[in-house]
Write a protein that binds this DNA or RNA. Structure first.
Length: 577
RNA sequence: CGGGAUGUAGCGCAGCUUGGUAGCGCACUGUGUUCGGGUCGCAGGGGUCGCAAGUUCGAAUCUUGUCAUCCCGACCA
């Protein structure tokens, strides 16, 4: 490809609306252009990268026994009614009506459609197992799209769905996919960690996410997930799912008799612990949440925080948020109290379900709110003044240095970009949608399903997050839009131009993806652009060509060698083997 | 959804306080110059100042509304 013909516009400056480095670089280097909030044009260079990633995904999926197909981007609401998700998916699901006023949606994922395909096409256990996948644009109307390709509303995703006769079959399909994913990301030049995670709106039981860890060189917060992992064993989990052993700390308060004391203006745990001169670990914190429209009071030890996803799952909810101050007033009024935020307690709350984290179980002589402003109960004990809630489970956010449940080592935390995930769905969709097959014993049974996603465009952005420097992108060879760029320093110099053309032709003849910068630009412009767009290798043809020498530069390492044109060509050809 | 900010040429920005026919840099067109890390000069083209009302003889500038975009928050009790 000739640079003079390539559709590309590099910018001298970073775009003003970009925050993270992958977004800044992809726009500046002419890979993407924003069309609307969270919606991007993939320009020719970007499309080449995307196709590279897609092909790696295809090769590994195919060799893992999956078959590619393509489902519609627009889906009828009926299928979503069947699965029950039309009412629970929320605003992320982009709904629309056709001219006949039929309700449709833009596909955010395809469990419903694939299940309908399976129930029509698979009648017998003899046809199983099957794994079907597609690579396609998805649309999710995110609350807050950001970070360019990392969290867009429209994005390209590979989604695969497996169908098995039983759990053992699913286990096998699942581990085959896990292995394929490892290979895929490895081949894309990305080191990933497979971590346990919550299964969220998709449903199901077991799930793992593939995370690109981004803590080390975090000049920004591109990693949207906190990943807890054990340095000594293989335990790792997304914070929304992570568990830990209870840490040893002071849980027996110094107050020996129970008594309601004045605690003026102690609206936070910190203020309260300071005012009473006690550790926060002997305070029982009470937080009011709204889960699917219902009020929930969550009790947790004062030194710990609630993990909302865990809390939501404890009630099998779909939506959770902290209650607003107005809602808390409402609860207070309904319960006959008048307390401000900071003094709320579980006792006497009307129309509020109460749940406790495991951490509060062992509290003794502790401090807790009693729905009286500027007062707290001290020296409280469960069963004496306040009953221990019957619903007790783990709803706490793990913290760094908590102990690993497997090996008791101190856990560490890092940021991660989720580039892939795998779920065991079980029969959630097949049962709801009545998708069955006839088993050996002649019985109708629902399919045992799994689903497996990879964010293609997010993977590309994650690669930029991991591979760049102050000059631009440093694509891993396997997903770079071109392998090598040939740069004649001066378009005035005939020898340089003809030599560069020769090198270009030789590489072309050998099916190398090669770019030649034949634009009538000065050397500086061409060299800066080559670095910016991140082609892995650069062959620079300058004055030394009179001695039959060119510069060979490795973008990844920055290493340069002065060698003959033939050797430069050979080095590139060697890469193909 | 709450808070903050910004919308002026393809990109990055100034001008707005104190209303008077819209500017700079990059990019683009022509031309000369230069030629290994975004040369230097000359001459050009390109803008309903986000949109809509209002005030005024006159609005990019003042007022109101509206739309869009970005950031922060929605783990604080």
């Amino acid at each position: 490809m000739r640079m003079s013909k390539l559709f590309i516009q590099t910018l001298r400056e970073f775009p003003s609306d970009a925050e993270v480095i992958s977004h800044k670089l992809l726009v500046r280097a002419g890979y993407i252009r924003k069309l609307a909030n969270g919606v991007y044009n993939y320009l020719p260079l970007m499309w080449r990268v995307i196709k590279k990633i897609e092909n790696i995904v295809r090769e590994e999926m195919d060799s893992a026994g999956a078959q590619e197909l393509l489902m519609p981007f627009v889906q009828p609401s009926e299928l979503w009614q069947e699965s029950g998700r039309w009412d629970v998916y929320g605003k992320e699901l982009m709904r629309l009506k056709d001219r006949h006023n039929r309700e449709m949606c833009l596909g955010p994922t395809h469990e419903e459609v694939i299940t309908s395909i399976a129930r029509e096409g698979i009648r017998s256990y003899k046809q199983l197992p099957v794994n079907l996948y597609q690579i396609q644009s998805k649309f999710r109307d995110e609350i807050r799209p950001r970070f360019g390709l990392l969290r867009g509303r429209e994005f390209i995703m590979k989604d695969a769905y497996s169908f098995d006769v039983d759990e053992q079959g699913l286990d096998k399909s699942y581990s085959v996919m896990a292995d394929a994913y490892k290979k895929i990301f490895e081949r894309c030049g990305l080191e990933t960690k497979m971590v346990q995670s919550d299964s969220g709106a998709i449903g199901g039981s077991v799930s793992h996410e593939f995370m690109v860890l981004v803590n080390e060189d975090s000049e920004n917060n591109a990693g949207e997930n906190d990943v807890f992992y054990c340095p000594n064993c293989d335990y790792s989990a997304n914070s929304n799912h992570a568990v830990s052993l209870l840490n040893q700390t002071e849980t027996d308060g110094k107050f020996t008799s129970q008594e309601i004391v004045d605690t003026p203006n102690t609206h936070s745990i910190e203020e309260l612990s300071e005012y009473l001169n006690i550790p926060s670990s002997v305070i029982c914190k009470c937080l009011i949440y709204v889960i699917d429209g219902k009020y929930v009071a969550a009790l947790i030890r004062g030194d710990r925080n609630v993990e909302e996803t865990k809390l939501m799952n404890a009630f099998s909810g779909n939506d959770i948020r902290i209650a607003s101050s107005g809602e808390i007033e409402e609860i207070m009024q309904a319960s006959g109290f008048n307390a401000q935020i900071g003094f709320i307690g579980p006792k006497g709350l009307k129309n509020v379900e109460i749940i406790a984290d495991e951490t509060v179980k062992d509290l003794k002589n502790f401090v807790i709110g009693v729905n009286q402003t500027d007062k707290h109960l001290v020296g409280a004990n469960w069963g004496i003044d306040i009953d221990l809630p019957s619903k007790i489970t783990d709803i706490r956010l793990v913290e760094e240095n908590d102990k690993c449940v497997n090996c008791n080592s101190a856990l560490k935390v890092t940021k991660g970009i989720e580039v892939g995930n795998i779920f065991k769905l079980g029969t959630k969709y097949s049962k709801a949608m009545n998708a069955t097959f006839t088993d050996k014993d002649g019985q109708e049974k629902p399919f045992i399903m799994g689903c497996y996603g990879i964010g293609i465009t997010r993977t590309a952005a994650a690669a930029v997050e991991r591979h760049h420097d102050e000059w631009g992108i440093k694509w891993p060879l396997s997903i770079a839009p071109f392998t090598v760029i040939v740069v004649p320093v001066s378009d005035q110099d005939e020898l340089q131009m003809t030599s560069a053309e020769n090198i270009y032709k030789k590489l072309l003849d050998n099916n190398v993806e090669v770019l030649i910068d034949d634009r009538p630009e000065r050397a500086g412009v061409k060299l800066k652009d080559a670095d910016l767009i991140g082609i892995p290798y650069r062959i620079t043809v300058g004055k030394t060509i009179t001695d039959n020498l060119v510069e060979f530069k490795d973008r990844q390492t920055g290493k340069t060698d002065i060698i003959s044109p033939d050797e430069a060509v050979n080095r590139i050809l060697m890469l193909k083997n």
